[in-house]
């Protein structure tokens, strides 16, 4: 009964094909999802960290603040380092992230011109963090800063400027 045989073969072929396809999709999909997932889940923590003594800050000037705090980056428990510029003005604190809005290099404060300059692609920001020349598309990000018990605290959360 050749006809019967063909149906049987067709049934097997289709069955094996569908099941293999499903397994391939499942395993491949799982692998891709796992690789993509940290893009969403691995975020810098939004937390207040200590960044030195308040007494060390010079009034009315941008102080370069190296922040190093304990944090978890995926599996790694270690120090995360950041750079910020903090200007105390009376009781107010004005804090800017040093990360250039162009391609992420750390900007430098130029005392003479009173401007922030990026060493990578010659971006320039004024003393309020506004981008005034070169390629940067946005101002420097503002950071939250406060003084408590004589210590400077900075919030590490990334705020879109």
């Amino acid at each position: 009964m050749p006809d019967n045989n063909m149906t049987r073969r067709k049934f097997l072929a289709t069955g094996i094909g569908v099941i293999s396809g499903a397994i391939a999709l499942g395993v491949g999909g799982a692998a891709i999802t796992a690789v993509v997932a940290p893009a969403v889940t691995n975020k810098r923590e939004d937390k207040w960290v200590e960044a030195g003594n308040a007494d060390d800050l010079v009034q009315g000037q941008f102080n370069k603040i190296n922040i190093a705090y304990d944090a978890k980056d995926a599996w790694m428990e270690g120090k995360i380092k950041l750079l910020a510029y903090v200007k105390p003005d009376g009781d107010n604190l004005f804090a800017l992230s040093a990360t250039c809005s162009h391609l992420g290099c750390n900007v430098k404060f130029d005392e003479q011109s009173g401007k922030f300059k990026c060493p990578c692609h010659t971006g320039v920001y004024d003393a309020t963090g506004k981008n005034i020349s070169g390629p940067p598309p946005k101002p420097l990000s503002h950071l939250e800063a406060k003084i408590e018990d004589g210590k400077l605290f900075i919030n590490t959360g990334i705020k879109e400027a």
């Binding site: 893009a39 889940t41 975020k43 980056d73 995926a74 990334i158």
Partner: peptide, 20 residues
Amino acid sequence: DFITRLLMGGSDLGALTISR
């Protein structure tokens, strides 16, 4: 923004960037 995060494996250059 998503592509950049995907390349870095998170919001910063770090542990997962180097392993990927």
